[in-house]
Design a protein around this nucleic acid. Structure first.
Lengths: 350, 350
DNA sequence: CTGAAAGCGCTTACAG
DNA sequence: CTGAAAGCGCTTACAG
């Protein structure tokens, strides 16, 4: 019979190092292969033996080293997330969805932002440390994307269509449809006809689709497209403010503004208020995204709700299908939803 | 002389597997030890040899497997971040700081949220996959914290003091000082004397410090503390709204509200507006954090700016000192700053 | 159902 | 400055 102190001694770690699988094997009187089996449940093990192993694991507080597992199994069990900027109002939602689903699927999440100047540094995320990549940025060098695609490395893009020669799956939202609903609402319900579109940065895919939705809404209502009504808002408050102010000074007439996103709407609000134009009476304003502050600004912003968190979850699901060698669809379009508040002219605020 | 196709063939990977260090060694005509040396710069290598190795690495697009490195070197080169919730307005700033600094220091970042029900599952972040942990949540089981501390595993806590028996370093902000400045401003500049404090959840450390600052400001101005003026706001809009409304119905008099954080302030705004009390004329309102929407709500919120991003950066720095075996201070308190806008009664909005 | 052994792809004393 | 070899801590055919 062991005394307590003997037992305590056995539990100590002589080299002051964490225990390994062979410590467990010794303690349970089995081979390391057997320990590995009960750890992974890969092969049946006699119940009593398994129990002994489990007890040993518990007593030694054994946790297998990830690196050793990865090296031996050639699976990292890790998903990499590459994104451009961590700021921004919708980023938390995206990450929340990605984190939750990654965890639920039993994977780890490694994240990298490409903002800052470390782009040219040594490889960050790739085959050497992940099983697959989620890419939410156009700043991942095209050649790197090409290389990864060539070696058949699993990738899922978010909010961005790949070049034709690289058929990489995409998860994104119904930008065009949402924009069309929004602009149609302004026309149908509020009789607006001179509607400004404050677009995002040149080449920004979300913005391009929103512009198409804008144009389609005009067409459907037989309103001619007026080029002077499309101005850059940059998807940011400052530029939106400046350019809105400029339009006003230039005397361009309009009775509504479709801000490219909610941040843009903030700039538009500021410019309109500064020149004493009433929102929504004189100028209706609508945004896109439905970020947190949309309901708090005054008047509360009518906008499109994008299922950002769900985009995150779905991207992970798609990627994991890919990892499992399953065939997946090339494009997942998530539905968007019109959220009516006050800034469009509707008064029925809850 | 090699023909192009011969060369191309050599570059191909027969087993359709990524190249390893020995592929590089063969190609450069050296041992794998030498390749490792030029890779890590650990030992001097003759320049011409090093160059040949570099060329081979480039040609084969060789990237060393992280797992193999980790296993051999016993260093994961990875920092783990454990947090409770990913939502919330200040989370992006925190993560941004952490990510940037982690990257700058040449580490990887593994993140885990403890929200959701996977708490009891197998170990997530620990000695088996990271070199150290950043903990921003009280939900990491105390026993796990104890275990890690016992094996001398590097940990840095954020916004939370450890129990006395676990001297784990902490990085947090000057809550008390900030609150005191804020409340003193209300008293000195705006003559308020019946100031409500809407505190956060019971046991929330940030809230407790803010309450102390509140009390000290009162004391300094010889204003007696009135228990009925401290109510729970829960650090969330909904509860803040409900309890503010209740105070008003109960006929409790007050001329200012120190909302525990900016989210709380939103709820306070809503309740005050609903009962037609003018902000700031009848009731001054101030928040804490200075999240994005603080400047956009109407009237613009006077609040305390907390250097969240810097908290993130500093935590990483502290942790890495710990990893390097350096001694660090037990507590880092980041300074907070008063941001005066309109809701306190000051009109000098930029 | 179980064990002995090879192997995953690196790093790092140890010699030379 | 360089190489041969041991070793990091697991998984996984292969036998039995």
């Amino acid at each position: 019979m062991k005394t307590l102190s003997e037992n305590a001694f056995k539990l100590m770690n002589p080299k002051n190092r964490s225990h390994t699988i062979s410590d467990v094997a010794h303690r349970a009187g089995v081979s390391i292969a057997t320990v590995s089996r009960v750890l992974n449940g890969t092969t049946p093990v006699v119940p009593e033996t398994a129990e002994r192993v489990r007890v040993a694991i518990e007593e030694l507080q054994f946790v297998p080293r990830t690196a050793a597992r990865t090296l031996a199994s050639r699976k990292t069990n890790t998903i990499g997330l590459i994104l451009s900027e961590i700021g921004g109002a919708f980023f938390p939602l995206l990450l929340k969805g990605i984190e939750a689903e990654t965890r639920a699927m039993g994977y780890e999440l490694l994240i990298h932002s490409t903002q800052g100047a470390h782009a040219s540094q040594r490889k960050t995320l790739g085959e050497h440390n992940t099983d697959g990549l989620l890419v939410f940025t156009s700043s991942l060098a095209m050649e790197e994307l090409e290389r990864l695609h060539k070696i058949n490395f699993p990738i899922v893009l978010m909010h961005q269509t790949p070049p034709e020669e690289l058929p990489i799956p995409v998860v994104t939202i119904e930008n065009k449809d949402g924009a069309e609903k929004l602009v149609s609402h302004l026309i149908d319900e509020h009789g607006r006809r001179r509607i400004v579109y404050m677009r995002g940065p040149v080449g920004h895919e979300d913005s391009q689709w929103r512009e198409r939705g804008y144009r389609e809404a005009l067409e459907k209502h037989n309103i001619p497209f007026a080029p002077e009504l499309v101005v850059e808002g940059g998807f940011e408050e400052g530029l939106a403010f400046a350019n809105m102010q400029k339009m006003i000074q230039d005397g361009i007439e309009f009775d509504a503004v479709f801000a490219g996103d909610d941040d843009t709407a903030i700039g538009v609000y500021r410019a309109l208020k500064m020149s004493n134009r009433l929102i929504p009476d004189e100028v209706a304003v609508v945004g896109f995204d439905d970020v947190q502050f949309a309901r708090y600004i005054s008047p509360a912003l009518t906008t499109i709700r994008a299922p950002i968190e769900e985009v995150g979850r779905e991207s992970v699901r798609q990627l994991i299908c890919l990892l499992n060698g399953e065939q997946i669809e090339g494009l997942v379009l998530m539905r968007t939803e019109l959220v009516i508040r006050e800034s469009c002219g509707c008064r029925n605020h809850p």
